[in-house]
Design a protein around this nucleic acid. Structure first.
Lengths: 93, 93
DNA sequence: GAAGATGGTTTATAATATAAACCGATTTAC
DNA sequence: GTAAATCGGTTTATATTATAAACCATCTTC
């Protein structure tokens, strides 16, 4: 059996990627609310996705507050699609 | 977002369950070959599925050799199906 | 009867996920 | 104006998980 990309086979990272696949961009706060994750956990998992080149992170400002904007990259999009294909084999979909 | 049953959200356990969903029963050796897992890892993960009540384990003999036969239980089947449904939300299937 | 296989289990280690504690800046309350 | 909460995160410590290595008992082959 093919292996499931371990970077995506994690509940929170998968949730994040799933969201990013459907919206042009999303910021840290939005992702935290949508996924119900703690900020610490989210921060760590975003870093991992970023280090893998699956998402981009832009740290800027919204007014006077910091704002981190995330987008899925082409590489991330491909990886996600491959993951879905592999998973379908496991699930018999 | 709903949470993914952590017992099933593990590569090897998912592979095992996926196989068991499609065959009336499967023994240890067959599962090891199909999944390409080490015996130790498989043994541990089967125990976890068993402890959760997702599979049954029958340790018997085939001729003179020991033979462990695994089957998915009703509970396991339900859990697997719920997992698939939840996952579909993540994957937008 | 010693030297592999076979069919596993136990145990030690590496990797992962998660939350708690923290930090700097900003707003609010007094 | 300054003390206290709040916001947007990051770092670090801890619990959980996955995984492989080492092991054990039985059987087979030479």
């Amino acid at each position: 059996m093919k292996e499931l990309d371990p970077l995506l086979h994690s509940q929170l990272r998968l949730a994040v990627m799933s969201i990013l696949m459907n919206v042009d961009e999303a910021d840290f706060v939005y992702l935290r609310e949508k996924t119900d994750a703690t900020a610490g956990n989210l921060s760590v998992q975003l870093d991992k996705l970023y280090s893998a080149g699956y998402i981009s992170l832009e740290k800027g400002f919204a007014g006077k507050k910091t704002r981190t904007v995330c987008k899925v990259t082409g590489k991330g999009r491909k990886a996600f699609e491959a993951y879905v294909e592999t998973l379908k084999e496991y699930l018999n979909l």
